[in-house]
Amino acid sequence: MKCEEIAELLPDYLQQGLQGERKNIVERHLESCVECREVAGLWKQLALIPDEQPSPAGRARFDAMLQAYQAGQGSGVVTRRTTDKGTSIWSVFQWLRSPVGAVAWSIALVALGTYLGLQLGGAKSNSQDLAAMHTELTSMRQMVALSMLQQQSASQRLEGVTWTRREEHLDPQVLSALMHTLRYDQSVDVRLAALDALSRHAGQPQVKKTVLDALQEQQSPLMQVALIDQLVEWRDAEAAPGLEKLRKLPNLNPTVRQRADWAISKLN
């Protein structure tokens, strides 16, 4: 049997999931094929990499977090020891080598070029030039965000959502893409991130409407709970009829129904 055919059986063999004749086929192949035998050998060797032991301080941190959460201080409890590490100049340099860093680097170069060009060209007014440069940069950043929101990979779309958070005022096209992401993205994580990003733009009437519409469309309980929480945070009294409609859905997750009831009581 050829390696390509064994490739279909080998992963099951590695996880001890093959029996009888299929197992014999793989074992016969391994006897004659060095490459596949090496793969099987490496799989076994991986078990020799020992497990790491978490530090005993982890339990104390967990207990503190649990106590704080139960005391109603859930957010902001988990301290991040790693944040100060991120400020190392080497970390910044590493970041510049990543795809997003490369885009940021390009934008910085364009900005520098524009600035130098304006200076050397004897521009009329510095403040006007700087404003123009700022507008151009904003527009470029939004273009990057828009492009990333349309990527195949969920993690890239997540990065796209993150880019939108850098701007206080979003271009209508980016805002529209973000709202589309909230409603239709395949990944629940990306949809949740989009909701988070949109929460800062409650002043835009179409944002609240989109969130309300999404509430009726989303099937994931995680999403439904997040949307309900957002509406309560906005104290959007107009959401009450939508919540009533949601809670009457026959197949609604009981937890979501409970959350909707809680939200209705909060909003009324």
Binding site: E52, P54, S55, A57, G58, R61, F62, M65, L66, Y69, G74, V77, V78, R80, R81, T82, K85, P221, L222, V225, N253, T255, Q258, R259
Partner: peptide, 24 residues
Amino acid sequence: DRALSEDLVQEVFLRILRHRQTFR
């Protein structure tokens, strides 16, 4: 990264607390 791993484990349990209602 050990320190990051410790932080992320704490984050997981915080998220379990926050999203426990969604466990079916």
